[in-house]
Lab assay of single mutants.
Amino acid sequence: KEQQNAFYEILHLPNLTEEQRNGFIQSLKDDPSVSKEILAEAKKLNDAQA
């Protein structure tokens, strides 16, 4: 469930490039146990690119 939530949120971050988004999603698939950390990174990058 946590992985699904992170997946959904990353898909809807407006400021990520397609490449960045795909990278985060691939990381989620590779290691779902760190989905919280991956989501935090994605949000940080999204904010930095706002």
Rank of each mutant, 00 (worst) to 15 (best):
A48V: 11
K1G: 15
P32E: 14
K44Q: 13
A6H: 14
A42L: 01
I25F: 10
P32N: 03
L16K: 00
D31Y: 15
E2Q: 08
N46F: 01
A42V: 02
I25R: 02
L28K: 00
G23R: 09
A42Y: 00
E37P: 05
P32Q: 06
A50C: 05
E41A: 13
Q20A: 03
K43Q: 04
S27P: 01
E41S: 14
I25P: 00
E18M: 12
V34D: 11
S27V: 13
Q4T: 15
P14D: 06
K44P: 00
E18K: 09
P14R: 11
K44C: 05
D47M: 11
L28I: 10
Q4R: 05
Q3F: 12
D47A: 10
T17F: 04
L39D: 01
E37R: 07
D47T: 09
K29Q: 13
K44T: 04
I25V: 12
A42G: 02
N46A: 07
L28F: 05
I10C: 02
I25T: 06
N15L: 04
A48D: 10
H12P: 01
E41K: 14
P32M: 14
K43W: 03
I10T: 02
K36D: 10
D31L: 05
N46H: 03
R21Y: 03
K44R: 06
A42C: 02
A40M: 13
P14W: 04
K36H: 12
A42S: 03
E18Q: 07
E19V: 14
F24L: 08
A6I: 08
E41G: 09
F24C: 02
V34T: 13
K44H: 10
Y8M: 14
A6Y: 11
Q20Y: 01
S33L: 09
E9R: 02
P14F: 08
K1V: 15
N5F: 09
Y8G: 10
L16Q: 00
E41F: 07
K29A: 09
N15T: 04
A42D: 00
S27D: 10
H12D: 10
L11K: 06
Q49E: 05
V34S: 10
L11R: 04
I10F: 02
K43A: 05
S35Y: 14
Q3K: 09
E18A: 05
I38W: 02
Y8E: 15
S27E: 08
K1A: 12
R21K: 12
L11E: 15
K29R: 08
S33Q: 15
P32A: 13
I25G: 02
L39M: 09
E19H: 14
I25M: 14
N22L: 12
D31M: 09
L16C: 00
E9C: 05
